[in-house]
Every structure is written in C-alpha cells, then in structure tokens.
Design a protein around this nucleic acid. Sequence first.
DNA 1: ACATCGTTTCAATAGTTCTCGAAACATCGA
DNA 2: TCGATGTTTCGAGAACTATTGAAACGATGT
Lengths: 115, 115
Amino acid sequence: MQAIQIMSALAQQTRLQVFAELARAAPDGLSAGAIAERTSTPANTMSAHLAILSRAGLVTSTRSGRSIVYKAVEEAVRGLVAFLVNECCDGNPEHCQDIIENLRLDLGSPKPEAT
Amino acid sequence: MQAIQIMSALAQQTRLQVFAELARAAPDGLSAGAIAERTSTPANTMSAHLAILSRAGLVTSTRSGRSIVYKAVEEAVRGLVAFLVNECCDGNPEHCQDIIENLRLDLGSPKPEAT
DNA sequence: ACATCGTTTCAATAGTTCTCGAAACATCGA
DNA sequence: TCGATGTTTCGAGAACTATTGAAACGATGT
C-alpha cells in the first residue's frame, strides 16, 4: 500500500529531516551533496536515504550538471494526510470536521484560543 | 520524536489495519481477541502489535472482565496530521491552505470536480 | 481449589533496515 | 584524454522488527 511506503520512508530521523529541509527549500530543491552536508551524513548513506524517499514518491530528482537536485513532492504528503484523515473517519464522518478544525487552529498562525 | 514513533507504528500492514478497525469501531473499541480474529492473526502476534500501537499512543486499553478492550486514540492521528502539514508548510505557509482545500475535497463526500 | 478462557511474556528464528568503506559512474574543464 | 568533483552502487556488519510455540498470568465460574 502507498500510505505504508510513505510512512516507512518518513519514519526515520534522517529522512524526515531531509524531507523537511526539502519542503522548506521548495520550489528550488537542493543537491544531494547539500542535503548530505546539512544533515552531517556521509554521501553514500544519504544516497541510500534519498533512494528510499524517491521510491516512496516523496521526492523527485533531476540532474543539473554534476549535481543531482532533489525536490519535495507535496502531493505525496497531501495524499498521506487525506488517507490518515479518511482512516479515522471512515464510519464516523462527524470526526473529520473535528480534525480539520484542529488543523486550522494548528496552522492559522495566531490561534484564537487554546483547546 | 513523537511523529516518527507514530508513523513507524502505522507503517505496517497489520497494525494499520488494526488501527482502521478500531477507528471504525469507535467509541466502543474491540477486545484483543476480536481484533486478532478479524485480522486472522495469532493472539500472541497481535499482542505484540497492540503493544507497539499502545507505546506510540495510538490506542488505549482497559480490562473488562477477562477481555482487554482497545480503543483508537484519535488525537494521536490528529497530531500526526498537524505535524505533517506543518512539515510541508514551514517556510511556505501558502501551501498549507492548498493542502487543506484538497483535504476538504477528499472528505466532503461528493467532490465538485476533479482536477 | 480447580479448570477454563482471554491475554501477555519469553525465547528463538528469519527477515529487514541502517550504516559506511571502497569502488564505479557521470560530468565537467583543461 | 586526463584529473577532479558529485553521486550512486556494492558488499558486509550491526541493529532492529516481525512472527510464533510454549509458558505464565489474571479473571471467572463451580
């Protein structure tokens, strides 16, 4: 299943950090070397992690000269989020609204009031 | 990190299925035996999986006579969803709105029009 | 006290994932 | 063509995860 692959890919310190950096660096992306440097990881180890993120559809890569530039694929996370919400809701649709409300609070910078 | 533990817990066929069943069975929950039966998993294997879900904060358990009843903890998923969305947004807040819009489409049963 | 039922713990095995040195590959500039 | 640079692939070891038979535990009814 798609969702499982995405969650396994993100359920690891280094890869989660990489994805976060790439999301932040959107839409330009970062080269493999730059990513390795930022996370203080050897290049070959990082290459393995990037391959996993790529197989999960969380990043894409394009060569640019000698470098290979990685970019976060936002739809992948969007899909996972939708899946998770549906997971919780299936059979209990009224809970979905609830989740979304909470999300809005979490996002809309200054949340009006706690709880 | 909290999010990693939750994603590792859910990044496994059986456990994801268990969590889905429990979410669907909310707010009553299901006994360990009932869960094992529904997923055709031996009781001891299931016990190990339930322990993992429990450690991740995704389920709670309470004894009821001889049975132990497990319930899904919705806030755990809600927290994960919020985390993922923030992950994508941090530095690019304009993308958040976009994700939420898509979520709404995914949820509001009849989506108006496919992209 | 006993047998029974539902569940967990223990111990062992098989499989998977993480990590990294070394080697290979691709691109570039000279 | 050569050397340098950025990246991936290979191979191996260590660490973790999943699964299961057997044994233990806790609650119940008699």
